[in-house]
Amino acid sequence: MSKMVQIENLYAQIGEKKILKGLNLELEEGKVHVIMGPNGAGKSTLSKAIVGHYDVEITEGTIRYKGEDITNEEPETRALKGVFLSFQNPVEIPGVSNAYFLRTAVNAKRKFEGKEELNAAEFLRKARELANELGMKTELLNRSLNEGFSGGEKKRNETLQMLLLEPDFIILDEIDSGLDIDALKAVSEGINKLNDGKRTFLIITHYSRILDYVKPDYVHVLKDGQIVKTAGAELVEKLEAEGYAALGES
């Protein structure tokens, strides 16, 4: 099985605080990987490091995506190449229409891939269809980006972006937080729709709730800036039952 992502000996810090400390992680093409870990372990820092967030300074190590070193790439370049992060707390941008933003992003990617850009009508048809599938009110397309959206609406909007952009490597940072059961099911269906055996998912979560709907192939435990254990889906149940402390003895 080929590797979609290879992270080697990654050291990263936010400000003066060293968070990732020689992290190694390989993610296989077409597989669902889950990262679990206690608060402060570095889960969100890892996702930010992968997408090139300005907060995170990488001091050592490399991130390879499809064999290419993207450690120092601009965030937009990583996105255009197919890396996508669903944010834990998506920002609100008053004055930028959601539809205009989505269409700009979709067409930027299509242009990058050498495809013809979608016109307004084609785009809206597609966006409305996907929004309906997600149980998302289509009026949210005409509102300012995330402005006044509920927590569930924001997560649905993140999922809509994922479906429209069709990325190859998808990082879902706490996608299940703040979702009621209906929203959780809708978001999970969106994820499963893209889970076609070619794309790679990295699900970052505290709890196993979403894993009732999206079946993981691998579970990694991140603790104190390093991956301390990798196993199959059965590890989730063990962690649920015994907590992260149990890993100390394993």
Binding site: P75, E76, F87, T104, A105, A108, F112, S144
Partner: peptide, 19 residues
């Protein structure tokens, strides 16, 4: 946020100014 969706820096900046 805009850049993470593949919108280049200059374009993202313009979008925010227009907003």
């Amino acid at each position: 946020y805009l850049r993470s969706r593949g919108i280049v820096y200059e374009e993202a900046k313009k979008m925010l100014i227009l907003a």
